[in-house]
Structures are given as C-alpha cells and as structure tokens.
Amino acid sequence: MLLEIKDVRKAFGDQVILDGLDLGVAEHEVVALIGASGSGKSTLLRCVNLLTEIDDGTIHLDGEEISDPRIDPDAVRRRIGLVFQSYNLFPHMTVLENITLAPVRVHRRPAKEAEAQARQWLERVGLADKAGSYPDRLSGGQQQRAAIVRALVNSPRLLLLDEVTSALDPELVGEVLTMIRDLKGEGVTMVLATHEMGFAKQVADRVAFLDGGRVLEQGPPEQVLGDPVEARTRQFLARIIEAGRL
C-alpha cells in the first residue's frame, strides 16, 4: 500500500468529522471519495497532506508513519500533491512562476530546467499561450488545469484532488476531467474527493463512500454506485439522482 490510513479521528470542537476512518490506496490506484457535504472528504485529504493535525490513528506513506510528530512535514508534503477546490493559484505570480516556484525553491532545481519542464506541461494541457499570464486572466478551468500542473511538476508519489471541479461552470468541467483521465493513464496515484458521480464511475478503480466519519462502503464503482449494499449509500445516491447528477 502506498497510503495507509488507520483508525483516524478528527474533531473540530464538539463536531466529530473523522471517527475511526480506515482507507488504503495502492500504487497507481485511483480512489474516489464520495459522500455528503461535511462527511469529511476534504478534511481527510488535508490530514493526509498534514495541513490538518489528526486527533488519533495513524497515516503511513510508503510504509513510513507520517502522523508521527517527529517527522518533517515539509519533507512529507514534497511527496504529496494537493489540488484545491478554489485553485489557490498565487495571484501575484504568472502561471509559469506559479508552477516553477516549488521546483526551484523546494526541490532546488535550476530555474532554466524547471521552466522548460513547466512549459512542456503547459503545452500538453493546452495552456502554452498562458505561461506569462496572471491567474485572474484565466478562466476557472484554465486556472484549475494550471493548479494541477503546479502540483504535478514536483512528481508527487500521490496526488490529492479536493473537489477540483466544484467551483467550475458546467461547460468548463470537462476540460479538467479530461486532464485527470490522462493522468490516470500515466499511472499517477490519486485520491479524489468528488461530487461528479459519472466521472467517478469512469476514472476511479475504487469508490469509497464516507458517512459518519468513516468509510461506510467501498468497492468497484459499478458496485458502489450501481448496487450499493448499505442503506445510507442508497439514500445518498437517490438524492444525487434526484438532483440529476448521476
């Protein structure tokens, strides 16, 4: 297992978000996290990236316990990419500067080399002409693609995607999903929190339904989304279908 989450708990004040959650992710696997708003999908991703401290349990990455407080969190984050719902590009930097910041400052790579690689990536995702633009000149879909590239140029072992299409206009969702589908083809290990059930079905090897701070049900997308065992999953999916999202 590349990522192993065991009995993780997290509460904010009285509100228990994660309540003994277990989840494993194998290398090259794509796991989709589904569940209602507030079911802990985003919190889980932030915990894995050590942006949020867990209250109990363990998280292992490549067999190393990253929930150990003695570990250097910056070193862990260098191995994990995180893409946010609202892109979080740095508004005072051009797209190219956004992408080369970590390779140059964190991974100490020569600026020229980092820039060449960034340009290659931008070319691939159709943003070559936006390299010198500031984020506010880009559409939401373009910003999100740039944000994904920003995480990918560091060659992370694991890519976490937190509802990356939720802030996008419907007609822009497709371009981002296409990009994620391509990444799966290249064997990038991903955990993605999503509301796009159709997409989860296409791209995920496994779907995990979060409810009450745990993984209530998980399995192949056809089974979890098509023929769920748990009543709670069925209820959740019924609401999604009602909203016309599946």
Partner: peptide
Amino acid sequence: PSQIAAARSLGLTYRQAMRHVVLPQAVR
C-alpha cells in the same frame, strides 16, 4: 489562509511561504 495552505502543500517551509507568497501580496 488558503494561499498559505497552497504554498505549504507544495512543500514550501513557513519562511518560504511567507517570503514568496504572503509578503508580496501583503505589501501590494
């Protein structure tokens, strides 16, 4: 805070995040 989260998620240290991400925006 999401700007700091983005910077830290890339592996930047607190100091680097301050210097390259927070301060340039703050001063502007």
